[in-house]
């Protein structure tokens, strides 16, 4: 029999409400609260219930996660369930935080359920399976059933469908699949186009995400003292592509030293080239400064228009790359840029 573990908060464990929200993490080798329901619905034995106060998780996240991962270190389990969290924001956060940590540490599937309004959804839908749930505990049975049905599919090793087939929030992950209808992309695209021309409804296989608003950054107060970095999605890399950045649907990025370099040398000189598979590389290979304008920016540096150019330029490939991957890579780059005192970035795309 497969084994499952459930994470719940102090309220659902029957310990108390807001006054007990600082409850420190605890593990019990028994069925507590909704664990009984889960145990009935699941094709696995729920061996343990983990309980933690929502505020404790919220304000002592590192400590809470460490303690709970410690509880789990010597326990065998095949799946981890958190919640359902309904519309409770702090509970949603807690389920997401611990779910993500458990998934990363033990590489087991993690399933949760939250109401669409729960902020935990946007924070963690990329990390764990989260199903849309009801607003309150009145929906416990329905929400837990949905979790259990999907969990059972995973436990049985069944082929899992896409987010929309299965019903969980879209994670922004693309998979290669063999279609059962064996209909090639060209035919599907033509069918869609014909429907569009006729004004009929059709479902895109690549929905364009809604416009993402980004807070406007404050202007740089004094450019002549600022450090400026160059970042590109144009796939310019050293000719041997040392970080093996993919030519399309990239998940990797690199940063390469340009200290004291006046302009990027080209492919023929054995210096830089593009590996971007989404455009004709000839112009970029002949002169990579057309994509990463180091020569022009260097001129401004010499004139004193800017303080200095950051020692590295940052690069990846922006074709077929999902927004989720792009956002992750961007965040990773920003960490370096922040730590190394970069004031502003010129991002060039192709």
């Amino acid at each position: 029999m497969k084994k499952a573990i459930l994470y719940i908060n102090q309220f659902f464990a029957g310990i108390g409400g807001e006054d007990k929200a600082d409850y420190t993490p605890e593990i019990r080798a028994e069925l507590v609260g909704p664990a009984m329901l889960l145990n009935q619905l699941l094709d696995a034995e729920v061996t343990h219930t983990i309980i933690c106060g929502d505020n404790y998780m919220g304000s002592n996240e590192e400590e809470a996660v460490k303690t709970i991962l410690g509880f789990l270190a010597d326990i065998e389990f095949d799946i981890f369930i958190a919640g359902p969290a309904f519309q409770a924001g702090r509970y949603g956060n807690a389920c997401g935080v611990i779910g993500k940590a458990v998934k990363e540490k033990f590489n087991v599937p993690v399933v949760s359920s939250m109401n669409p309004e729960n902020p935990g959804v946007d924070m963690f839908k990329k990390d764990i399976y989260i199903f849309p749930g009801g607003k309150s505990a009145a929906k416990m049975r329905t929400d837990m059933k949905q979790i259990a049905e999907f969990a059972n599919k995973i436990l049985r090793g069944e082929r899992l469908g896409s987010a929309s087939d299965e019903g969980y929030y879209v994670r922004g992950i693309r998979h290669m699949v063999w279609r059962e209808d064996e209909q090639p992309a060209s035919e599907r695209a033509m069918a869609m186009l014909l429907k569009k021309l006729k004004g009929e409804e059709f479902v895109s296989e690549l929905p364009i995400p809604k416009i993402d608003r980004v807070p406007v950054a404050a202007p740089v107060a004094d450019l002549s003292k600022a450090t400026i970095a160059l970042v590109t999605s144009g796939g310019i890399v050293p000719v041997d592509n040392p970080d093996r950045i993919q030519s399309a649907s990239a998940t990797r990025w690199g940063r390469y030293n340009i200290e004291g370099v006046d302009k990027l040398g080209n492919r023929e000189e054995g210096q830089f080239k593009t590996i971007h598979a989404g455009y004709d590389p000839a112009a970029a290979d002949t002169n990579p400064n057309r994509v990463v304008p180091l020569d022009a920016l260097r001129a401004y540096e010499k004139e004193g228009r800017i303080g200095k150019i950051h020692e590295y330029f940052y690069t990846t490939v922006g074709t077929g790359t999902t927004e989720a991957e792009a956002a992750r890579m961007g965040k990773e780059m920003v960490e370096y840029l922040h730590n190394e005192g970069v004031d502003a970035v010129i991002l060039t795309s192709t």
Partner: peptide, 16 residues
């Protein structure tokens, strides 16, 4: 969501 945008001239050769 880019906030400050400067147009370039093409996809394969944005700046030349």
């Amino acid at each position: 969501g880019a906030n400050r945008m400067v147009p370039t001239i093409s996809i394969p050769y944005p700046l030349g």
